[in-house]
Design a protein around this nucleic acid. Structure first.
Lengths: 208, 208
DNA sequence: GGTGTTGAAGCACGTTCGTGCTAAAAAATA
DNA sequence: TATTTTTTAGCACGAACGTGCTTCAACACC
């Protein structure tokens, strides 16, 4: 083999360049030339790793989905490790839901990119499959969270689905507002809204 | 004057063309050429009514904001006309919140356009002012609704703001899901989520 | 040391974009 | 009828886009 280059690492570098461009200038500016410049490569080099612009975008979409759902999954495992109703569980739940929001630089970039791709998928058919996967993955995690938070077998299955969709919608709306009106939707406001939502869903656990 | 043409009506026709293009092909496809074609005009004609592409987009954004906030405003007046806690008020509230969602063709187009412009405003500074106005207008209406639904003076002002933001986030998230995952987020699911949210916020009024 | 594979770079082509500008058409007015 | 003004249509230019194709350099392997 010639010139030793870790192809997978290279692809990830290019994807990171895509993320930065989407976060700062929007998805429509993520052209091959812009991405190549941002990654410090030539257009031909980027095209060596990604056959077409579409392939680059789909791969980037898949990457951000994997990143986000990975974070959510591990946060959910942390919730499952806590005893139901405890203050520790409450904190773990808040941590899980916080993974949806642009609370730090890395989360903000991912949230930006995720939003951009999901909305683009409405128009670009090549992104539709990943958008489906994204929705399914996140809905599954929120659904499991709702089950963890539901007291016993009391609630009907129908109610669980509705509550999961409600929480998911609230999270996406919060994320959207935090991205689009950051001056209004501050981290503190996010926290307040989350706490209020959890309080309305189930009684706040008594502090030990 | 030559050729009698209602300038304002012409501008509205062009704006309607912009709406259709955004709803079907996305905002990035709303170029002067595409808009002119969709409106059945020449590029020069469109540019006669709108000096630049930016002016056309800003005017279109303002139009959709006025349409939506107008609908919300009249729906809120209907809520204020009902006696608090009655079933009639509950129905009026559901009607008001339904104005956020793409429940029919017209609402769907407006919701699409609204979403597209709000997200574009994060990148395009020319749209920022209208995005601010949009957020303020809708937040004010939801705030008034929350006050109407809050029992007496019981709730603190802080809680009202949080609850308003929470409802607004849920509505935007619902709207987003209805636009992006229409097969999953059906009208019935929207209705269920809305009912659940209102039930968690205040007890459902007893049927008379 | 020669050789072939592969990463990197760049050019060329056709398309689309916004925009400045000009020319024709149409209708109100003189 | 002739003139004037608004509306409509179109052209031309520079920039940016995706993509097919070619060229060059570098390194593993025989």
């Amino acid at each position: 083999m010639p010139k030793i280059v870790d192809a997978e690492a290279r692809r990830q570098e290019v994807v990171q360049a895509v993320f930065r461009i989407i976060a700062s200038d929007g998805l429509e500016r993520a052209s091959l030339r812009e991405v190549a410049d941002e990654a410090g490569l030539a257009v031909g080099s980027v095209r060596h790793y990604f056959a077409s612009s579409d392939e680059l975008l789909v791969f980037s979409f898949a990457s951000v989905i994997d990143r986000i759902s990975g974070r959510l999954e591990s946060a959910l495992l942390a919730v499952e490790g806590e005893t139901p109703g405890s203050a520790g569980q409450h904190a773990a739940v808040l941590n899980l839901l916080g993974q949806f929001l642009p609370l730090d630089e890395e989360l903000a970039v991912d949230a930006c990119v995720w939003m951009a791709f999901r909305h683009a998928a409405r128009i670009k058919p090549v992104l539709a499959a990943e958008a489906e996967r994204s929705h399914r993955a996140v809905a599954a995690i929120v659904g499991r969270l709702i089950i963890l938070l539901s007291p016993g077998e009391a609630a009907a299955r129908q109610s669980l689905v509705t509550e999961a969709e409600r929480l998911l919608a609230t999270m996406d709306g919060l994320c959207m507002h935090a991205l689009l009106q950051p001056e209004w939707m501050t981290a503190e406001m996010c926290s307040d809204v989350l706490t209020a939502h959890l309080a309305a869903f189930a009684p706040v656990p008594a502090t030990p």
